[in-house]
Lab assay of single mutants.
Amino acid sequence: CHSECLGNCSQPDDPTKCVACRNFYLDGRCVETCPPPYYHFQDWRCVNFSFCQDLHHKCKNSRRQGCHQYVIHNNKCIPECPSGYTMNSSNLLCTPCLGPCPKVCHLLEGEKTIDSVTSAQELRGCTVINGSLIINIRGGNNLAAELEANLGLIEEISGYLKIRRSYALVSLSFFRKLRLIRGETLEIGNYSFYALDNQNLRQLWDWSKHNLTITQGKLFFHYNPKLCLSEIHKMEEVSGTKGRQERNDIALKTNGDQASCENELLKFSYIRTSFDKILLRWEPYWPPDFRDLLGFMLFYKEAPYQNVTEFDGQDACGSNSWTVVDIDPPLRSNDPKSQNHPGWLMRGLKPWTQYAIFVKTLVTFSDERRTYGAKSDIIYVQTDATNPSVPLDPISVSNSSSQIILKWKPPSDPNGNITHYLVFWERQAEDSELFELDYCLKGLKLPSRTWSPPFESEDSQKHNQSEYEDSAGECCSCPKTDSQILKELEESSFRKTFEDYLHNVVFVPRKT
């Protein structure tokens, strides 16, 4: 048989008469490798580009789960590009990614509803959504962080984005990388972005840091009482949809009607710091009717980097990364020049730590249904340095008659930039024990000054392991946590139920 035959053949030295091919099969003959313009397919066939392209389009058009959109890589027609490569849609070739590779997620039936953290986790790592997304989240724990972890990498949506009755959302900033909504599939009414009845939605994105392009379709905003109209108009300008909307697409009466839409800028007039305090004062603000001013709200939190936005980490279910302080308005003076500047002394802060701070007014709604208010920009203030805590785990070892090696770990709280350490030492008198000992005694162990690591005695271990207080009263049991108490109650309830079950099964009433 021919060298490319495997198993047997019907005619000697003829690659077209093989029972099976050793390498690849091409047009009725066995070959060692697939010549151009053919590609290896499933490690035994040679196919042309049209064959591989037909497989790709067949799966793409069917949208069946589990099928493969075949691509070409290293002269092979394979189910998908290997790690580190992405497909070129024009020629199906796998090309190296520039940075992290995109991950295209194809949605069944063309859309997916995100109504819980669990459903959001199914899209973790996706960068391109081939379909439409509907966000409908009523509640949950730590929602802002969970949504950002699972949806934060999405850069492109081919269909539309719909935010509907998501009472738990305060902001859409968890879509931190969303840059493009194509609108290839539109919501009824030709809408590519749809926001309806979101009672706590206050911000779409921080438009000073976020760009969003909507290729096709219109915007729809109705019944978002805490979303200011200025935020919607800003989205029109940034996304390129200005002029597409009709009169009733953006409701003037049901958007922002319960919001404090600040239209003035508060400026800080005085800032002073110490290692654990920050004193702030800002310019006074009074609405047209000074009785509408209820006070100020001061927001602050630790910020290692200057990239904080107002609604980071917030949701309507209680999660809030900001510390909020309510401040009463100052006494009002008739003389504008003698107006008191409101302020606040922030206490209990960490030394040498940068804080993000902003302040906003708290006002009631005027009778004319106009909203007044003022808010400052987010500023960054760093507390002063102070003395560091003591170095940890000092170790001293003498390696000769004239040297001592000293080692330690950095302090747990540096409280500033540590530039150097101060080492103090003092000579001590020799131990009298060394002169009084009889060095001729056998088995004498000389006193040693070398360091030995501390260890816990058996008594201390027994005390720590004991669940009861000892007789001397030195140790006591740790208080039980809520989960331990709940577990004990469940076990007790189970024992009672099981005992009742045994009584009912074992003891049967005697027939009379």
Score class of each variant (00 low, 15 high):
104 V>K: 08
108 L>C: 03
115 D>S: 07
115 D>N: 06
119 S>A: 03
119 S>M: 13
123 L>Y: 12
127 T>N: 06
127 T>F: 13
129 I>K: 00
146 E>A: 13
147 L>H: 02
147 L>K: 00
149 A>K: 14
151 L>V: 15
154 I>L: 09
157 I>R: 00
157 I>T: 01
159 G>W: 01
166 S>H: 02
177 K>L: 05
178 L>E: 00
178 L>P: 00
179 R>N: 06
180 L>K: 11
181 I>L: 07
188 I>D: 03
192 S>L: 00
194 Y>W: 12
195 A>S: 09
197 D>N: 15
205 W>L: 04
206 D>C: 10
206 D>W: 03
208 S>M: 07
219 L>E: 01
220 F>L: 09
221 F>M: 14
229 L>D: 06
231 E>Q: 04
231 E>C: 14
231 E>Y: 01
241 T>K: 12
242 K>S: 10
245 Q>M: 13
251 A>S: 08
254 T>Y: 10
254 T>S: 07
254 T>G: 13
260 S>G: 05
261 C>A: 09
263 N>F: 02
266 L>C: 03
267 K>G: 06
267 K>P: 05
274 S>P: 00
283 E>Q: 00
288 P>A: 08
289 D>I: 02
292 D>I: 10
297 M>R: 01
300 Y>G: 01
301 K>D: 08
303 A>W: 07
307 N>C: 01
312 D>P: 11
315 D>Q: 15
315 D>T: 05
319 S>M: 15
319 S>R: 10
323 T>S: 07
324 V>K: 01
336 P>S: 07
337 K>R: 06
349 L>P: 01
349 L>Y: 00
350 K>D: 02
351 P>Q: 06
352 W>I: 15
352 W>L: 08
353 T>K: 10
354 Q>S: 04
355 Y>F: 12
359 V>R: 00
360 K>F: 02
361 T>L: 03
362 L>S: 06
369 R>P: 05
377 D>H: 05
379 I>D: 01
379 I>K: 07
380 Y>M: 04
386 T>R: 06
386 T>F: 13
386 T>Y: 12
388 P>I: 05
390 V>R: 14
393 D>I: 04
394 P>H: 03
398 S>F: 05
405 I>W: 08
